[in-house]
């Protein structure tokens, strides 16, 4: 288990309700409503906790005729804590992970359900947002201005500003043939 995964696992487990869910699943597989009844929480709250537990591979789900059942992932808990402590930390790797975490934070803050909520005022954040939008363009393909506008409009109405900023940030280039993605 990587150090980052271990931190995510411990953080997620540091919650009484989630531990109670895992304890229940250690006894038998269950569905959301049954867990909600046993733990005296709403089904929505249980779903929220199960989502968090799924993200750290602590539980898995499978469908039966009537319900989506949840079960404990024994393999995740079979790892010895001592083995996690003995793992080496690589500073370059940590730096990259911090950068990735920052990027994700910016993306989560500015995008909702795939739409850009607003164009960031800070250049560093705008660059991250533009890089995310640039992923919608296939590398090596030349797009007309209209195609560029349509693709950007899927993210935000102000496609002119975004298109111009993508050129100035050297994420895209253009000539008489059209526009293409650079990175």
């Amino acid at each position: 288990m990587t150090e980052e995964n271990a931190i995510r696992l411990f953080k997620c487990l540091a919650d009484k309700s989630r531990l109670q869910i895992l304890k229940s699943l250690a006894v038998e597989d269950m569905y959301v409503e049954l867990l909600a009844e046993r733990l005296n929480l709403t089904p929505a709250t249980i779903s929220f906790h199960l989502r968090k537990l799924s993200e750290i591979d602590a539980v898995r789900s499978y469908k039966t005729q009537y319900y989506t059942m949840y079960s404990l992932r024994q393999d995740t808990f079979a790892v010895k804590i001592l083995d996690i402590l003995k793992e080496q930390s690589d500073e370059a790797d940590l730096q990259a992970r911090r950068e990735q975490a920052y990027r994700q934070k910016v993306i989560d803050a500015f995008f909702q359900y795939g739409k850009l909520k607003s164009i960031p005022a800070q250049r560093k954040k705008e660059r991250i947002v533009l890089e995310e939008i640039a992923k919608a363009f296939e590398p090596g393909r030349i797009y007309s201005e209209r195609e560029v506008n349509i693709l950007i409009a899927d993210f935000h109405d102000d496609f002119c500003t975004i298109r111009r900023d993508m050129i100035s940030e050297q994420l895209m280039d253009r000539d008489e043939r059209g526009y293409w993605r650079l990175v």
Binding site: T42, A44, T45, S47, F48, L50, R51, Y113
Partner: peptide, 8 residues
């Protein structure tokens, strides 16, 4: 969107 946090 299956956004469990926002649902709660």
């Amino acid at each position: 969107h299956g956004d469990d946090l926002k649902i709660v």
